[in-house]
Amino acid sequence: MKVLVIVPAYNEEAIIAETIRNIREKAPGTDILAVNDGSADRTEEILLEDGVGHLRLSINLGIGGAVQSGYLYADRHGYDYAVQIDGDGQHDPSYIWPMIRHMEAEGADLCIGSRFIENKGFQSSAPRRAGIRFLSALTRLLCGVLIRDVTSGYRVANRRTIGIFAEEYSDDYPEADSIPAVIRQGGKVIEYPVVMRERTTGRSSIGPVRSLYYMIKVSISILNHL
C-alpha cells in the first residue's frame, strides 16, 4: 500500500525539520512530500539538506494551492492514500496508520482527524470553536453528515478523494468546503479522534477580520456544493 504524507510548509524553518523527523519515526512505511509554499525564509535549504522529497512552489499559493499540488503528485504517482498534516507540529503523526486502518474498516473516502470527539488536547479558543460549530451545523444541514471538526487540516484521502482534490481544492481555508465536495460525489466522510498540540512557533494565518471572511467564504462555498 502506497501512502503519501503531504506536509505544507510556509516559512516554517524553525520546526519543519523536526516535523519531518517526527513523521519518519511515528509513521514508518510512508513517503513524505513536503510542499514549500514559496517560503521567504530558510525552509527550502532545510528541505534540500534533509533530502526529503519536496515540491518548491515558485509563487506562494496559500495552504489550499500548496496542499493541492501534493494531491496532484499523489494522483500522478498512483498513491492509495494521501495524508495531509500541518508543517508546524500541531498534528501528531502517530495517528496516520490508525486513521488509515479505521478508513479501511469503515470503507470511507475521507477521514478527518478530529479534536472534538474525545475533547482532549488543544481545543482552540472559544470564538473559534463557535465558528467551527456553526460550519459543522451548516455541513450537517446541507449534507446530512455530522462532522465535528470541519476545519481540521489533519486528514486522510483515499485514491478516489485524491482525484477529487487534485481537480478541485480551494486556495484559502479549503478544509471545510472540501467535505461537501466529497459527499456530493457520493463519498463517505468520517472522523477519527486525535489530540492536537498548540502551535509552538509561527502564527496562525487567521486573525479576527480573516475569521469573518472565513465564515462567509466557507458558507458560500458549502452552499455552492449543493
Binding site: H54, L57, S58, I59, G65, S69, L72, R76, D171
Partner: peptide, 17 residues
Amino acid sequence: QHARIRKLVQEYALLEK
C-alpha cells in the same frame, strides 16, 4: 486566470522535483 496560474505553478513544481 488565477486558476490557470495556480495550475501552472503546481505543474512546474512537480516538474522541478
